[in-house]
């Protein structure tokens, strides 16, 4: 609903600007949703991500090997695809990121790399809303935390 990808009731505002008051694609350029299983519109990584210094910097931070940009997507591991999708999203410079299990396919070390990078983005002013099954990740990442039990919010922990 926050990325306006499903028909819904209610509305969301960012800095007083309501989602329903602006064209949907402009809203989504600011409020980026990253699903747990990212979609790809071609098998070439470079059709999705530009080959520039910024990309290489981020790849290094996320622990991605250099030649990942030149491999066909179907040959990459789930974890590599998930990090590339994060990278693709970040290159849009969104103001809000809605992350659905961004580290689901990652090992512990890489998870920490991703979290570090997300922390950097947060200090730069990006708002991150993250859904996770991992309580420890939640406590590492969250300024504000909500628990969902049996489909209902069970109170806020700050």
């Amino acid at each position: 609903m926050m990325a306006d990808l499903d028909p819904h009731q209610g509305d969301t505002a960012l800095d007083g600007q309501f989602c329903s008051a602006m064209p949907a694609h402009l809203w989504r350029q600011q409020v980026l949703y990253l699903p747990a299983e990212p979609g790809w519109w071609s098998d070439r990584v470079l059709d999705h991500i530009q080959d520039n210094a910024q990309t290489h910097g981020l790849m290094k931070q996320l622990g991605l090997r250099c030649n990942v940009l030149h491999d066909p997507i179907h040959r990459l591991s789930t974890g590599e695809r998930q990090r590339l999708a994060l990278l693709r999203g970040l290159s849009q410079r969104p103001r809000v990121m809605l992350l659905d299990e961004p580290c689901a396919a990652l090992d512990d070390t890489t998870t920490l790399l991703v979290e570090d990078m997300l922390h950097t983005k947060m200090t730069e002013g990006t708002i991150i809303i993250l859904v996770s099954h991992d309580i420890e990740q939640a406590s590492r990442m969250a300024d504000q935390r909500c628990e969902i039990v049996h489909g209902h919010f069970s109170g806020t922990i700050i």
């Binding site: 694609h25 350029q29 699903p35 693709r88």
Partner: peptide, 22 residues
């Protein structure tokens, strides 16, 4: 079949015309 590919374009801020042009 390509639902997730089109949705990926939409989430990244493409208009529906851009996402379905191909």
């Amino acid at each position: 079949r390509e639902r997730s590919a089109i949705e990926a374009r939409l989430t990244l801020g493409a208009t529906r015309a851009e996402a379905m042009n191909f």
